[in-house]
Amino acid sequence: MKKIIAALFSATALFLATEGAYAVSAQQTGSDVVSTIQDVKNGNYKIDPYHTQIIFSVSHFGFTNYSGNFSDIAGSLNLNIHDVSKSKLTIEIPIQSIQTTSTKLTTELKDPNWFDAAKYPTAHFVSTKSVKTGDKTADVTGNLTLHGVTKPVTLHVSYIGAGINPLNKAYTVGFQITGKINRGDFGIMTYLPKVGNEVDLNIAAAFEKK
């Protein structure tokens, strides 16, 4: 019995010590996040595909704003904090990664009536102009190629934070990005106008320094 009690005591002590160390580590990690954008490192970054997601939302017959998402995003960012006009952004979106809460709809959206993923497997955004709009915000205009059509699109970018990712030790900078497109402009016409033409985009974008 004494041995069992001793073992339980040791296990409890180890657990508390581990939790304490974790708490200290978490506090240190939080304090390491750079909230002041002027202190962010300039340079070349690549998208972190595991922590970048694109969410789209469209009116569904006027009843709901229905959402889905794309994943496995790729791309790059040439970041110049002190002269935003020199920054460059590229985003590559694999259409096959599209997901909704309906398996049937997810499959249909990949068909020729919608995104036609077999014929147009990737959507591309390439920035052409970046303009600072606030201390932590900028408008990034570029060319979006989707469904075989290229149109100019403006994305609204808000800085979130930067620092060392405690898991992989990569220097990471993150942004929240919003924008709107009209799907009809890109030849995706199914169920217009009952299913909305205007599509809202909301992007959580994480970039790791090369």
Rank of each mutant, 00 (worst) to 15 (best):
M1L: 12
M1E: 14
M1G: 12
K2N: 10
I5C: 04
A6P: 11
A6G: 07
A7K: 13
F9Y: 07
S10P: 05
A11P: 13
A11Y: 13
T12V: 14
A13W: 11
L14K: 11
F15M: 07
A17Y: 10
T18H: 12
E19A: 15
E19C: 15
E19G: 14
E19I: 15
G20D: 02
A21W: 15
A23H: 13
A23Y: 14
A26H: 05
A26M: 04
Q28I: 14
T29H: 15
G30M: 11
S31M: 15
D32N: 14
D32T: 14
S35T: 15
T36C: 13
D39V: 09
K41Y: 09
N42S: 08
N42E: 08
G43I: 01
N44T: 10
N44W: 03
Y45G: 09
I47P: 03
D48F: 03
P49L: 00
P49Y: 01
P49A: 01
Q53K: 13
V58G: 00
V58T: 03
H60Y: 03
F63V: 13
F63G: 02
N65P: 06
Y66A: 02
S67R: 10
G68N: 08
G68T: 03
G68D: 06
F70E: 06
F70A: 03
S71M: 13
D72P: 08
I73P: 15
I73R: 15
N80Q: 13
I81E: 07
I81Y: 05
H82N: 14
S85M: 09
S85F: 10
S85I: 04
S87Q: 04
K88E: 11
K88A: 13
S97T: 08
T100V: 06
T101Y: 12
T103C: 12
L105I: 01
T106F: 07
D111S: 15
N113C: 05
F115L: 02
A118R: 14
Y120A: 01
P121Y: 08
T122K: 15
A123N: 05
F125M: 09
V126H: 06
S127T: 13
D135M: 07
K136Q: 13
K136I: 11
K136P: 10
A138M: 14
D139W: 02
D139H: 03
G142M: 07
N143F: 04
H147L: 05
V149K: 10
T150M: 03
T150P: 00
P152W: 09
P152Y: 09
T154V: 06
L155C: 01
L155M: 02
L155A: 00
V157Y: 08
S158Y: 10
S158K: 12
S158N: 11
I160G: 06
A162S: 08
P166L: 03
A170G: 07
Y171L: 00
Y171K: 02
Y171Q: 02
T172Q: 11
V173G: 07
G174I: 09
Q176Y: 12
I177M: 11
I177E: 11
I177Y: 08
G179E: 00
G179A: 01
I181K: 04
N182A: 09
G184K: 01
G184I: 00
D185I: 00
F186R: 05
T190D: 02
T190V: 10
Y191N: 01
P193Q: 01
K194D: 04
K194T: 06
V195M: 05
G196H: 01
L201N: 12
I203P: 02
I203E: 00
I203L: 05
F207W: 02
F207S: 05
F207Y: 03
K209G: 12
